[in-house]
Write a protein that binds this DNA or RNA. Structure first.
Length: 566
DNA sequence: TTAGGGTTAG
């Protein structure tokens, strides 16, 4: 391909390297470079380094920089911005920064903004600020590096302070500034400011760019202005994966499950391939709705379109989302099939299986998965033990549960948190060991919380233990006076014991605290869609039929000796 | 001949 001498000049070599780099063909770029062995100038080196960095191969770019230095070629102001962008660690970056100073390039604004950018990505704001302060010329790109860099590491106030300084210096914000600032208002919920930015965007004609419009969709969505977000989305001529993901997330965020799934369907029909973000937004909606059919359809689509790979970290996350959906929708058989096929399982994959089995009452299966997990020497984490302990709780494996809590730290190296204690209190409580549960609460080495006391209170109600119930109820109401469940539990307990004056008192303190009971709601997915039911509501078209069926079921349960708890 | 910013989930 490189025969005869017409590509001999360094000029052609560099252009060819650039061409290969742009096509993601770094092997060919390097071959081209090596072919021209007699005159490797700084241009050719810069082209190869830039190619590696642009293709996400920072390490190789770095190695090539070393080769350049070894060959005695002096780097220039074009070399460093690339090398800096390829730095992945603090030490590496500081070393390169030293070289920048050594070659007298620290006042170059291109080098400077690369430094600011990379320092902030690594969370080193003081170093970034220092570089920024030293630079004699500050253009809009440099300001953006500061504003967006601060925003990305969550220093929103600082980012806005820099943004206003930028305005005071008379620097006009660019499209890049706008996207960054919109993401800040999205998080802070600064709707008025966000709308002002929208006005500026229109004035400057920035609304022709897809990135700016995506950021606007996100901002309006997070500020709960679904209508505005949707208006922008529908008007967009060119929609990319960010546009779809953002508008889907907007609907998911405001609890519009149907809207989320409809938009996802539209996305597929528009021929846009979903990615990790899409899947991890949409699948939990199916799990929440227990909409197994929808979830299965999405999984089917993923298999058909090669999205169910098993190669990198993203793939593992996507597959975990699929498994979690199956587990939460109650189909452990499907969850296991997916799990079994995975070659690269991470700790979350195992945890999902343990949680799923435990949640559906297959405690011993959950413990089998746990023991397999130990056998393959997978690192256990806190979630693992929440799964294991709640499995013990739901299946009544009291002895095992006690033992796990006791050995968590010593044998498995995971320190028990409040969640673990809550699982065990719940477990002991359900099994009727109320004194032991109460003792555990009193003796545990960490602070209690309302969830823990509520678990104990629920157990007291189940087994009619008035004394511990009173303690737990007072604790729970003291720590979380706004939660309606506490009052309901307490009131039910008094009803069981016939203490009607106390029931009135509980009702009274509820109204004093302005606590209202949120009606219970459940739903089921059938062929024609999701049917929702709220406590006491008769809005469903077939309500009469359904309630008649329920009455007959209740009657049959009664005949078989079931006595309901109230 | 060659360089430095952006938006989405949890």
């Amino acid at each position: 391909m490189l025969a005869n001498g017409f590509l001999r000049s360094p000029l052609s070599t560099t252009s060819l390297i650039n061409m290969y780099s742009k096509c993601n063909q770094m092997d060919d770029a390097v071959s081209t470079f090596n072919y021209q062995s007699f005159d490797h100038n700084v241009f050719a080196y810069n082209a190869v380094i830039a190619g590696f960095i642009a293709n996400g191969l920072g390490r190789d770019g770095f190695e090539f920089y070393r080769r350049m230095r070894f060959a005695g070629v002096v780097p220039d102001k074009f070399t460093f911005p690339c090398v800096i962008r390829g730095c992945s660690g603090v030490l590496e970056l500081r070393k390169i920064h030293g070289l920048v100073v050594k070659f007298g390039l620290e006042l170059d604004v291109y080098v400077g903004s690369a430094l600011v950018n990379t320092y902030l990505k690594l969370g080193l704001m003081e170093e970034a600020q220092e570089v920024f302060d030293e630079l004699p010329v500050r253009d809009v790109v440099l300001w953006n590096a500061m504003v967006n860099g601060f925003a990305q590491i969550g220093l929103l106030e600082e980012a806005l302070a820099v943004f206003s300084m930028m305005g005071e210096e008379g620097v006009v914000p660019s499209r890049f500034t706008v996207t960054g600032v919109l993401s800040i208002f999205a998080v802070m919920g600064g709707f008025d400011n966000g709308r002002a930015v929208h006005g500026f965007v229109t004035k400057m004609g920035y609304d022709s760019g897809v990135e700016v419009l995506n950021a606007l969709i996100d901002m309006y969505g997070k500020c709960k202005c679904v209508g505005d977000a949707l208006k922008i989305f529908e008007m967009m001529v060119e929609k990319d994966i960010y546009s779809w993901n953002s508008i889907i997330a907007v609907h998911e965020h405001c609890g519009d499950h149907d809207g989320t799934l409809r938009l996802f369907d539209r996305m597929l029909k528009a021929g846009v391939l979903p990615d990790l973000v899409t899947i991890t937004t949409v699948l939990p909606v199916c799990a929440r709705l227990a909409a197994l059919m929808h979830g299965r359809e999405i999984h089917g689509y993923m298999i058909k379109n090669g999205l169910e790979k098993d190669v990198n970290v993203d793939d593992v996350q996507i597959t975990n989302a699929v498994m979690d959906m199956y587990a939460k929708c109650g189909s452990m058989r499907n969850a296991y099939m997916v799990f079994n096929k995975m070659r690269n399982k991470d700790v979350a994959s195992w945890n999902i299986m343990i949680m799923g089995y435990g949640m559906h009452g297959y405690g011993s299966k959950a413990l089998d998965v746990f023991s397999d997990m130990c056998k393959v020497q997978m690192k256990l984490d806190e979630v693992t033990f929440v799964g294991v302990l709640s499995a013990c709780s739901h299946t009544g494996l009291v002895r095992e549960g006690r033992e796990f809590l006791r050995q968590m730290k010593s044998k498995y190296g995971v320190v028990p948190t409040i969640e673990h204690y809550t699982c065990v209190v719940d477990m002991l409580g359900r099994a009727g060991h109320l004194e032991e549960a109460y003792q555990l609460v009193l003796e545990m080495p960490i602070e209690t919380n309302p969830v823990l006391w509520r678990a104990l209170l629920a157990a007291c109600r189940l087994h009619g233990n008035q004394d511990i119930a009173e303690v737990a109820a007072h604790k729970v109401i003291e720590l979380d006076p706004g939660h309606c469940g506490n009052y309901v539990l307490m009131s039910n307990l008094y009803v069981v014991n016939g203490q009607y004056d106390e029931v009135v008192e509980v009702r009274h303190s509820m109204s004093q605290q302005n606590v209202k009971k949120i009606p219970g709601c459940s739903w089921i997915e059938l062929k024609d869609g999701v049917h929702a039911f709220i406590t006491g509501d008769r809005a469903h078209p077939k309500a009469n039929f359904i309630y008649a069926e329920l009455d007959s079921l209740t009657a049959r349960l009664g005949e078989l000796g079931y006595v309901p708890h109230f």
